[in-house]
Design a protein around this nucleic acid. Structure first.
Lengths: 344, 344
DNA sequence: TTGAAAGCGTTACCAG
DNA sequence: CTGGTAACGCTTTCAA
């Protein structure tokens, strides 16, 4: 079946290709009328013919001529990661509603891969991109900016980038909030485990943790253990064993993966929460409600993060200025932070 | 910064645009040599100039002229769903390695949305698509086939579609395998909970379940409870309560979401596995190892499913015939299927 | 309100 | 091996 072009529609409707193009690009105003300089009767006929023939716009041609592709790229570090998978869906829905199709590509926390991914999507003339930058990703992002492609930073900030939009979590508040709860509940030796990734979200969650400890005059007890993706499983177990020996009574975990690893290590070591160790986890997961004791955790407003990032991006595509939006985390209380008298 | 075109490169290198096009499209053969009818010296110079100028191919133009876009579409029912998120990542990696960029779009189990999504990606001239079809999605998929766009069915089959590729799990075997284990372990009143989605994977897992029950002369005990996404939470709880009353000693769950709901309901009802009810879950999740008792579950070879679907699709794009590939599930044993003497 | 014609950057075709 | 040139289907002037 040969593909129907604008020309076929024009011929069949007895009008020029220009008219067809006008009609196909017209947006409907609030009254449902086509907003274009075309006789409504003619427009209607064109629409009918297009429908009848099964016309489908060729974005490649449109993009070549106009420079717009009606596609955006979304580049998380890993699409299969729980947090980004959820947010991606929200981005996708919002983008579709606004008339954009979405390219997805994972940067895998590697600046080389980020650069190659950005090269690829730029070659496809995308109109804008939403990126969760990895360490060292500045150069790649600047490539997009140099090509005048609007960029929105999601989840992680990069400093000294004036022309980008931002949709971030108030990570300092998230760290403070989690730690504060532990302190209020009477825990004292609260430590934290984090990754050496060098991304803003983690360092700010750490700042929040330190801030809360300081506010409660427990700064001397503050201690952060660092690990990497590869070593996390074994490191976490060590941190916990060692922590228990030193009298640590609570851990604040700033990511879902660390939370899961801690629960796993505790199960393996035969430790219970909150009796042996209180826990504040991060992000949403079934395990928080299904674990032997429900786990207190901090959730991000996924839907809002996704929708806002698309809104900010589309505004930039439309020539409006880049906005920065900071959203608030929420604390979901569970049994893992209830102070109990230890009964062996 | 003005975008560099093939013409700029040609001028700078002192050759024709044709030559540049040849060089930019040349694949490297096994010796690392450019496989094209161009003087190696010239080719090298062109490559250097392109690099220096920062040339980036404009896929819109290439696609318009050649009909190829080097992009494929992946359309699961929901990208945020654990199973598809994992598989998507594998697809993405494989596709990138083979030179393709990936559009993602969720069909949301709705044939209307599937159709609109397929329209959108076809308008972007994608070279092929990988789809997990929802009920009633035949028409939409035929649209792609009519446009001569290769289609690979992933995870779910649709009958009477001769021209499509298929990469599926041996779902009958998965159902049989899980049920068989329960029977071998001595459970007798084994029931199943499923969705009324009308998709092949679920109905085949059910066939496997029934097959195993029949093979062990327990067919009279076979019983499948159906629910929908919306009602699942409350229905599952009812099924379990009711089942316990009727002496059901095990449930086979054919999806991750049902497995999680069952564990959740059991926790709420104060039931333990395997003491009160044995469980075989589906797909991978942290909860299977973190639940009070580890949970026996069936896993799909995600990486293989993803990679194979890309391979089959790219072969079809290259004009080779459509293949059908059926992959084997694997059973991960846990504590939830160990027969124990019930001690109240 | 309508239409003719000029490209957008590539690749395909045909000559040399 | 190399180069000229005509498309591809659309949007965008510009003119009627």
């Amino acid at each position: 079946m040969k593909r129907i072009t604008i020309r076929d529609v024009a011929k069949e409707a007895g009008v020029s290709v220009t008219l067809v193009s006008f009609v196909m690009n017209a947006k409907r105003d609030k009254d449902g009328n086509l907003d274009c300089p075309v006789n409504p009767e003619t427009a209607k006929r064109v629409l009918q013919v297009a429908q009848k023939l099964g016309y489908r716009r060729n974005y490649a041609a449109a993009s070549l001529r106009s420079g717009k592709s009606n596609a955006i790229a979304v580049i998380p570090n890993d699409i299969s990661n729980k947090f980004f998978a959820g947010i991606s869906r929200c981005i996708e829905d919002k983008a579709r509603a606004m008339g954009y199709t979405v390219f997805f590509a994972s940067s895998d926390e590697s600046s080389e891969r980020l650069e190659s991914v950005i090269d690829a999507v730029l070659a496809h003339n995308i109109d804008g991109m939403i990126v969760a930058p990895c360490t060292g990703g500045e150069a790649a992002i600047n490539k997009a900016i140099d090509s005048k492609v609007p960029v929105v930073l999601l989840d992680r900030d990069v400093e000294n980038m004036p022309q980008v939009g931002r949709v971030l979590l108030d990570d300092v508040e998230a760290g403070r909030m989690g730690t504060e709860l532990l302190l209020k509940k009477g825990f004292r030796n609260i430590e934290m485990i984090s990754y050496t990734l060098g991304i803003s979200s983690l360092s700010e969650r750490e700042m929040g943790y330190r801030k809360a400890m300081m506010d409660h005059d427990k700064y001397d007890n503050a201690r952060v253990h660092y690990t990497t993706y590869g070593d996390a499983a074994s490191d976490v177990e060590k941190f916990i064993k060692n922590g228990i020996d030193r009298g640590v009574d609570a851990f604040f975990l700033p990511t879902y993966s660390l939370s899961a690893l801690v629960l796993s290590a505790m199960k393996k070591l035969g430790l219970r929460t909150p009796e042996d160790l209180a826990i504040v986890g991060f992000d949403e997961s079934d395990i928080y409600s299904l674990y032997t004791t429900t786990v207190t955790h901090i959730v991000q407003p996924l839907k809002l993060l996704g929708e806002k990032s698309v809104e900010v991006l589309v505004n930039m595509i439309d020539g409006k200025p880049a906005e920065s939006i900071i959203l608030k985390p929420e604390l979901i209380p569970g049994g893992s932070t209830e102070k109990v008298t230890k009964n062996k």
